[in-house]
Amino acid sequence: MGFHQISVKVNGNDEVVTVSSNMTLLRMLRESLALTGTKNGCAAGECGACTVMLNGEPVNSCMVLAVEVDGQEITTIEGLAKDGQLDIVQKTIIEKGGVQCGFCTPGMLISARALLNRNPHPTEEQVVEALVGNLCRCTGYSRIIESVQAAAERS
């Protein structure tokens, strides 16, 4: 099987990684770069636990090959806080109690941040639509949706 050397910017850092053809972006982040904030849930594009940003757009990292991100930019949950300051949506999800077990939270926050970047003042319906690919088995979603709305109000 083929191996490829790729250059990729992850959370602002330039990385050079050797990846096999069948390595997913998810596995590269977790196993080659030790960025274990991104979670492996269904490995089939359904649950959204592995959501990261690829050039600013959220993707299921289990559905992208590592070799495909050569020359691209990735943002994971570890890259959301800036200068030791949590992102506003990280703050509001803590305040509103939008986290229980926490497994879905990294993917949820990436989807939420990407939504707020493309639409700073979404309606409730738009928040629901943007998070439809992020499953949560604990919270019942209400508090997560409220957190995103609160973040939008404050920014």
């Binding site: 069948n22 492996n40 490995a43 090959l65």
Partner: peptide, 14 residues
């Protein structure tokens, strides 16, 4: 590592 779904089988990316 175990997961609900197995990883991708081996292939060559072209």
């Amino acid at each position: 590592m175990t997961s609900a779904h197995p990883g991708l089988p081996e292939f060559d990316y072209v």
